[in-house]
């Protein structure tokens, strides 16, 4: 009895009423409900998969496989996490498997990243100020230029950094949803996010150095 109540509480806390209603319709296998689910979350899932695997065709396949698996297991879904986390987790698992099979999974080298960061300080103070960026901060850059910078910066990052940044900064998932989607603990997420933001700053800094300023100027031409 206690377990049943606990499960019901967990379900209530993880899902909104609208999600619970949608889940019921999915479990009844209503085509319109599946269409609604994919119309609502499909574009973001494909964009996420593309950022992780780096290939549009493969991204579509990964999301397709994830949806088929979700459809097969819909009766077993108890709503212990949000529908969004559940969808991202299905895509994440398949994307990671595919990257590992293709030997394209890039692991985080925590020791090296932390050592590189520590090298920037001496006794807790900056050895040298971070170099300024060209074409940004002072002159706000637009979406087209941002896309060019991010397209080059993201692939420099380890797989998990890209995932955490995408789910947190772009999709706006909360910490619980990200932990559910990626299967990591809150403490691990905090460290991952900290390192990922640091790495993103570094990767964008490389893009917005003097060479990147020239590329941005060419984009304008």
């Amino acid at each position: 009895m206690v377990l049943v109540l606990l499960r019901a509480l967990l379900t209530l806390s993880a899902m909104t009423n609208a999600e619970a209603a949608l889940l019921e319709r999915l479990q009844r296998d209503e085509p319109a409900a599946w269409r609604q689910l994919l119309e609502r979350h499909g574009p973001a899932l494909v964009a996420y998969a593309r950022r992780i695997c780096g290939d549009a065709a493969q991204a579509e396949e990964l999301v397709q496989d994830a949806i088929v698996a979700i459809h097969g297991g819909i009766d077993r879904f108890e709503g212990r996490c949000s529908v969004k986390s559940w969808l991202y987790r299905a895509v994440h698992n398949r994307a990671i498997d595919a990257l590992r099979r293709q030997r394209r999974f890039v692991d985080v080298d925590e020791a090296r990243e932390d050592a590189d960061w520590a090298d920037r300080f001496d006794g807790g103070a900056w050895r040298a100020a971070p170099p300024p960026w060209c074409g940004s901060l002072d002159q706000r850059i637009d979406a087209k230029r941002a896309l060019a910078v991010v397209e080059r910066a993201l692939p420099r990052l380890p797989t998990q950094h890209r995932e955490v940044l995408w789910l947190k900064e772009v999709e706006g998932l909360d910490a619980v949803e990200i932990c559910d989607a990626l299967g990591i603990s809150p403490a691990n997420l905090r460290m991952c996010l900290h390192r990922a933001r640091r790495a993103l700053q570094q990767a964008v800094a490389l893009e917005l150095g003097s060479a990147a300023a020239e590329a941005l100027t060419n984009l304008e031409a």
Partner: peptide, 19 residues
């Protein structure tokens, strides 16, 4: 710069036509 990097990421995040 951290804030700007996050802003650039969000700016570039709109699903593409192919997505």
């Amino acid at each position: 710069q951290l804030q700007e990097a996050r802003r650039l990421l969000r700016l570039a995040a709109t699903p593409s036509e192919s997505d």
